[in-house]
Design a protein around this nucleic acid. Structure first.
Lengths: 115, 115
DNA sequence: CTATTGTGCAAGTAACTCCTTGCCCATATA
DNA sequence: TATATGGGCAAGGAGTTACTTGCACAATAG
């Protein structure tokens, strides 16, 4: 059902980030990756690889009976652009907030009867 | 227990990203934020705010009985640097992988007896 | 052919996430 | 003081996640 997972959620798991960090430097097959995470089973790694594949961060290249895993950085652009998008606002609005907080809510009858 | 939550996990939730997107543009108190997410309860929003606060993405400014929420972009640097860190490798290694995959495993006796 | 290696799939479980309802406390106003 | 508003805390539930064990299947080596 979740054919297209969320990239934000995919990189939320430390193990998956470690897999990305490893495979990005050196493409490897499934067992070679699992060997680097000996504290958990091969199936656990296989599941993480599937999740990374479903969100487009990792592709498989079948080579005989092996699956060479390769990282695809493109989906991370969504994360990066989301961060960049708001950082513009932050640099501007932080000043506005400081000014806003410095104004005490003057207790005159000019109440804005909220909602 | 989780005094310092993971930033990656904090931004994995769509609701929390929406909160960040809203509060980054306009600082607001808790009820004002909850009013923008009328499909869920105020307590649900309050919990999201706490999670964002625990990972340093949001600070509270107490003003009388109100809590003005303000976004702090600093923790996102960790996400951005993680992405940038690997993108260097990707641009280099993608070529290496292409070359690697283009080489058929030549069936001469020069096998690399990979440990 | 048989044995080995590489890998996927299924079932089950423990832990966690997200949300709700209900209650309580603090601040402001009349 | 009483009342309304702002907001936290706790219990509980439905759903999801991360991991395990066990089995099955395909490709290669001998």
């Amino acid at each position: 059902m979740e054919a297209r997972r969320d990239v934000f959620q995919a990189i939320a798991d430390p193990t998956r980030r470690a897999i990305i960090g490893m495979v990005a430097r050196q493409p490897a097959n499934v067992n070679a990756i699992a060997a680097h995470f000996s504290h958990m089973s091969r199936q656990a790694i296989s599941l993480h690889l599937r999740i990374l594949n479903e969100c487009g961060l990792l592709t498989f290249h079948h080579q005989g009976r092996e699956r060479i895993c390769q990282i695809r950085p493109e989906p991370l652009d969504e994360v990066q652009s989301w961060i960049n998008q708001h950082q513009q606002f932050w640099s501007q609005k932080l000043d506005a907030l400081s000014a806003y907080l410095d104004i005490p809510p003057q207790p005159n009858k000019n109440k804005q009867h909220g909602h």
